[in-house]
């Protein structure tokens, strides 16, 4: 009987043992410390935070009613924004497709090209569009060209990476069949790989175009063309009613882009 009771007492159960429990508390403590440290270090000027509701109210009052006097300039700037997105997406395709071909494990010619491809993709993706834009404004001067190049350089990584993954996921059997007919490498790609990645290709391009429209709206803040130039100018002049109109126009454009891309997506897939 005594033995039995002792056995039962031994059966106490806890999800974590002592060491695991301590580790968990340590992780909680470190997280808490990181938050406290960050909040203290970024030095928030609290009076401004408490004042925010007033500021919002006053900014809203200054923005109302939106001023449509400049609609002509706004409209053409919006068009420019769309052109930047469209042109850069189109041009990106020519760079991103070869890069995705060498960055996909099953099509790349050798190890060196695989790493070159991956390096291009990673370096493109790790730099934000706005940073690329700053760079290209410095090189080519302010304007649409810098904007197009900036969006392109960021899109290469996005499209290239996703296309590379699409290539890696293809069914290998048609490839084998095309090789067996005596087709050259490029013809094998054309018949066995291209048809298989076509749906992914269209989906990726449409998605990126959608993203690029939104990215193009802020390019102007660093002088790289589009609606952002007008927005920055109006903010500088405290023309808040015009700013309101521009913000509205951007919202309308993004919604239109969203609607168009969802229709296109349904059509091609």
């Amino acid at each position: 009987m005594v033995d039995h009771a002792a056995k039962l007492a031994d059966r106490a159960w806890s999800r974590y043992d002592r060491k695991e429990q301590l580790t968990r508390y340590a992780v909680y403590l470190i997280t808490l410390m990181a938050v406290v440290w960050a909040v203290r270090d970024i030095d928030i000027f609290w009076p401004w935070v408490w004042d925010a509701p007033n500021q919002i109210q006053s900014l809203g009052a200054r923005m109302w009613p939106p001023e449509f006097g400049q609609w002509n300039a706004i409209f053409s700037a919006m068009l420019e924004t769309v052109h930047i997105a469209t042109l850069s997406t189109m041009l990106t395709i020519f760079i991103a497709l070869p890069v995705s071909y060498i960055a996909a494990q099953n099509t790349t010619p050798n190890k060196v090209t695989l790493w070159i491809g991956r390096f291009i993709l990673v370096s493109s993706r790790s730099v934000n569009t706005i940073i690329w834009a700053l760079l290209f404004v410095a090189i080519f001067g302010p304007g649409v060209l810098a904007g197009i190049l900036a969006v392109m350089f960021r899109s290469v990584g996005f499209i290239g990476k996703l296309m590379g993954e699409a290539i890696e996921e293809i069914d290998r059997r048609p490839v084998e069949a095309m090789e067996a007919t005596g087709a050259s490498k490029f013809k094998v790609v054309l018949y066995a790989i291209v048809p298989q990645v076509m749906p992914a290709f269209f989906a990726i391009i449409i998605l990126r175009w959608d993203i690029n429209i939104r990215e193009s709206t802020v390019l102007g803040l660093v002088g790289a063309g589009g609606i952002g130039v007008l927005l920055q100018g109006s903010i500088d002049l405290f023309a808040w009613q015009t700013v309101a109109t521009i913000l509205l126009a951007i919202v309308v454009l993004v919604i239109l882009g969203e609607a168009l891309t969802s229709v296109l997506r349904k059509k091609v897939i």
Binding site: R173, A177, M178, E179, T181, G182, Y191, M198
Partner: peptide
């Protein structure tokens, strides 16, 4: 390889292409 035809267990056709394109791919 052009002179050696091959038929596979899984057919190995290109699904998204038409029958004619698949047939003509034998001439690649």
């Amino acid at each position: 390889r052009r002179r050696i035809g091959m038929v596979f267990q899984g057919f190995n056709l290109i699904d998204r292409l038409t029958v004619m394109e698949n047939v003509l791919s034998g001439r690649l």
